[in-house]
Design a protein around this nucleic acid. Structure first.
Length: 474
RNA sequence: GGCCCCAUCGUCUAGUGGCCUAGGACGGAGGCCUCUCACGCCUCAAACAUGGGUUCGAAUCCCGUUGGGGUCACCA
């Protein structure tokens, strides 16, 4: 078997979205498992819609997910350049060769003429196909406005064995002599992809299954160019909850949006792979396990609905198992991004308190900003204050304050015991005592365990907060 | 509409002819634990689209139907 060479070939017309990311991911996993090469190629032949900002967004998305490429933008490689608009000479050379061999021809039918014919066909409810007007004209190179068309066979059929869909056969009569090169020398998708996949020695093409219909036509081009056709693997689409193709109205579809929303790249990767691939009952996979265990055999053929709740759960699992220094760095970034505050010395010790209860890193950053960083809580939840900081709880707060003042040094466990004893002597559960204190200390009713939070904040800060709370009580 | 693809709990899926009174996970319901919120643990509800074949035997193989998706450009 020749070494595996796979590629991800996005068109830079927007950010890297969930669907594209999964395509890239499957290719990347295969390359890494097979010790092959993963190539990133930018298909920027649609000049109208391609932007440099999109290229950057895609690169950033890939990097965030940890999908490093061996050849492509920024890293270069033996087949550079990796931008299609910089490879025009290559397409021209291949097109010329096809023309010489009679496998393609120049056509100077105007777009307007063809559009008009297409409109008539549509009105009469019949399919439109290029009528072959220029098939035998043998227009010379340099004919003004001439495009190059590929001569499609009209007889027979092409079959290929897709790694995920199985055998797919298409009759040649479905095809028409499609344009492969525009008058300005910019290739169309099918041709550009085929030429580059040949030039770059691609052995397997894995992409979204919206491309299955292109595949037989591309195979015909591989054959016309005398090149062995690669193996194909078409991945099913990712759908929204309404079973429609995932799009903006389903919420976040940009990969980087998930970063900003507090997801771990490992969790997103884990989710995306499991959406369409399985390994028995296993749900959680490290990156290394994914590389080891991924196979095409267990890639499903059905479109999958993107389920944000499961992603949440996976992210939580990932947060739980992320080593502290790594998690602290990520939370630090979130803190800066969301609250414009740099991580202080309390951040690292605070994270273990949040690790079991946060679905996103943003929750950790937000909690830190809300009641750890400042002298007093940044804000008090009104309902919580109204319910817990009252005349009735004031005596309890005062007694709690005294317990903290006298017993802080003995540590959280001892403090908790003293709280229990107090609560018991009043005929109350610990909750009745702890909750007002929690509101006083954190400004909310929801926080990590109270005594550990107090221990983290320190005696002075805690007492000041209780004093501030007492003042809130009329 | 033509062509192509797909079809197991609400969702992601296990299942490759007998191990299936269909397993796991998310989500849902109930419970335990508990200083709040979570975590964790236990229990429950929940699916082979449909009709025909093939076979001793079908979720698994074949055909039809229905439903869904993709695609029919000088977009990719």
């Amino acid at each position: 078997m020749p070494p595996v060479r796979v590629r991800f070939a996005p068109s830079p017309t927007g950010y890297l979205h969930i669907g594209g990311a999964r395509t890239a991911l499957f290719n990347w996993l295969w390359a890494r498992q097979q010790k092959g090469t993963f190539i990133l190629r930018i298909e920027d032949t649609d000049k109208e819609r391609s932007t440099d900002a999109s290229v950057q967004a895609i690169l950033d998305g890939m990097k965030w997910l940890g999908l490093d490429w061996d050849e492509g933008p920024e890293v270069g490689g033996p087949h550079a350049p990796y931008f299609q608009t910089q490879r025009l000479k290559t397409y021209e050379a291949h097109a010329d060769r096809l023309i010489e061999q009679g496998k393609a021809y120049r056509c100077d039918c105007s777009k307007e003429t063809l559009d008009a014919l297409r409109a008539i066909a549509q009105k009469e409810k019949r399919g439109f196909k290029y009528p072959g007007t220029c098939r035998d004209k043998h227009l010379p190179k340099g004919t003004p406005g001439a495009v190059v068309r590929f001569r499609m066979p009209s007889e027979g059929a092409t079959t290929f064995d897709d790694l995920v869909k199985g055998k797919i056969t298409t009759e040649h009569k479905e095809f028409q002599d499609e344009v492969i090169l525009r008058a300005d020398g910019v290739p169309l998708y099918n041709f550009g992809a085929v030429v580059d996949d040949i030039e770059m020695g691609i052995t397997m093409v894995s992409r979204g299954d919206d491309h299955v219909v292109n595949t037989p036509r591309q195979i015909l081009m591989y054959q016309a160019l005398d090149y062995a056709v690669p193996v194909f693997a078409h991945l099913p689409m990712i759908l929204g909850a309404d079973k429609q193709r995932l799009s903006k109205r389903h919420g976040a579809v940009s990969v980087l949006q998930y970063r900003d929303d507090g997801f771990l790249p490992g969790a997103l990767v884990n989710y995306l792979v499991r959406l369409g691939w399985s390994h028995g009952d296993q749900e959680i996979f490290t990156r290394q396990e994914l590389i080891e265990k991924f196979d095409w055999e267990h890639v499903g053929a059905t479109a999958g609905v993107f389920n944000p709740q499961k992603l949440d759960w996976l992210n939580q699992q990932w947060i739980k198992s992320t080593p502290l220094p790594e998690l602290a760095a990520i939370v630090g970034h979130a803190l800066l991004r969301r609250h414009q505050i740099s991580p202080g010395p309390l951040l690292s010790p605070f994270i273990p308190l949040m690790q079991e209860r946060a679905k996103t890193v943003n929750e950790i950053a937000d909690a830190y900003a809300a009641y750890i960083e400042g002298d007093l809580p940044q804000k008090y939840d009104e309902k919580a204050v109204a319910k817990n900081l009252t005349q009735e709880t004031k005596p309890l707060l005062l007694e709690a304050r005294k317990l903290i003042e006298d017993g802080f040094e003995k540590g959280p466990h001892e403090l908790e015991q003293s709280f229990r004893t107090l609560a018991e002597s009043r005929g109350l559960g610990l909750g009745k005592l702890a909750q007002p204190v929690r509101v006083a200390v954190t400004g909310t009713t929801v926080s990590p365990p109270l005594f550990e939070t107090i221990a983290l904040l320190g005696k002075d800060k805690t007492l000041r907060r209780i004093d501030a709370a007492l003042e809130k009580i009329q």
